[in-house]
Design a protein around this nucleic acid. Structure first.
Lengths: 212, 212
DNA sequence: GTCTATATAAGGATAGAC
DNA sequence: GTCTATCCTTATATAGAC
């Protein structure tokens, strides 16, 4: 006769527990996006995951904790762009910038929703999270600046204002996420990314034949 | 002996009443911006104008009414750009686009705050106001499209994607307003407007010598 | 026209049964 | 681990005194 060991038991519970937490997390992002953080109640969130508030509080400490979770997670999108650059290794500044810009502009839908969340709900974050968020934004813009600098040094780019150009690349994505309601009838995410990327490259490339 | 006529009396009251309402309106914009609509209570708003909630409700019917007032007012900023174009009369497409872009990018601070409000608090508007807002945005973008078209026809501009360029002009301002916390140490509003305007013109002008 | 007091509703969070 | 019941706080909005 076989009995399940206590450790396996514990792991099992932890697995379903983290599954539940994940479920709550996903539902929270969805509701926060649709109605805003302040307009989403814990009761609603509980209903969305087929629980009652009492049950919900078994998994999360407070509403604020959820906001923190979502915020932290959203910031990973920023890091993934830098990770891509590293994985690409030794390529030309032209190709590097194009690849990273395109990647940043086509991050999948979940990440897109998180971008909106960050951008819009800054006012509902605690002071500490606002700080973390700001740093993350600055860091990503700085990353694009360095890509631009590389190209300038290599003689491939000609850029009037490096910061502003980097800022605009960063913002192209935010624009798409926050103005989705306006753009969805006109572009797919893919088309938007392609065209904005081209617009950027056209602005800075010394040799315009390299656009393709 | 002179007595004030009833009509003068009435006008006087209406004047102070509308002054009060204006005061409430200004305070509301300020608070909504800083803390978001949902996080701003009528009590707070009352305190901000040195009243109690009871007094406040003498002037406004509901919180929703205030949001509607602010929304409607914010939309005037869009109209003022079109009005400028008309007032300029018969000038070259190049000059017209430059003037309107610059104007749109430098609208004074109050209008700037209202832009943030609209962009961020869309989720707190009623369905009807969301509709009005969307229309107004589309209309302004369309206005920039027509300016671009004029230039293309006149052979002054060369534009790959007219809508996207118009959209980016529109968004340059929203960017500045919503990312003010990021940009304020780097640009004055004036500098930002100048540089973004130049970036746009550089992208589309056939004859680049016409930039400055 | 402004205040105090209060009705009424909703939200976050907890205690304790099962 | 989930539910019911409930506490406490805060919010919108109104009634009526002054």
């Amino acid at each position: 006769m076989q009995t399940t060991s206590p450790i396996v038991e514990k792991n099992k519970k932890e697995k379903t527990a983290s599954k539940r937490k994940r479920q709550i997390f996903d539902a929270a992002i969805h509701l926060f996006l649709e109605k805003g953080v302040a307009n989403t109640s814990m009761r609603e969130l509980a209903v969305a995951v087929n629980m009652t508030t009492g049950g919900l509080y078994h998994y999360v400490k407070s509403k604020e904790e959820i906001v923190r979770m979502v915020t932290r997670n959203a910031i990973y999108a920023h890091e993934s762009v830098k990770a891509l650059r590293k994985s690409l290794g030794d390529i030309s500044p032209n190709e590097a910038l194009r690849a990273c810009t395109k990647f940043w502009l086509t991050l999948e839908k979940t990440a897109q929703e998180q971008t909106i969340f960050l951008d819009r709900e800054r006012v509902h974050m605690g002071a500490d999270m606002q700080q973390v968020y700001s740093e993350s934004v600055r860091s990503l813009i700085h990353f694009f600046e360095s890509l631009l600098d590389d190209g300038v040094k290599a003689g491939e780019f000609e850029v009037d204002n490096v910061f502003l150009t980097a800022f605009n690349i960063y913002m192209s994505r935010i624009q798409f996420a926050t103005k989705w309601w306006l753009l969805q009838d006109l572009f797919t995410a893919e088309e938007y990314a392609t065209q904005q990327t081209n617009a950027v490259m056209k602005q800075i490339l010394v040799d315009r034949n390299k656009i393709s």
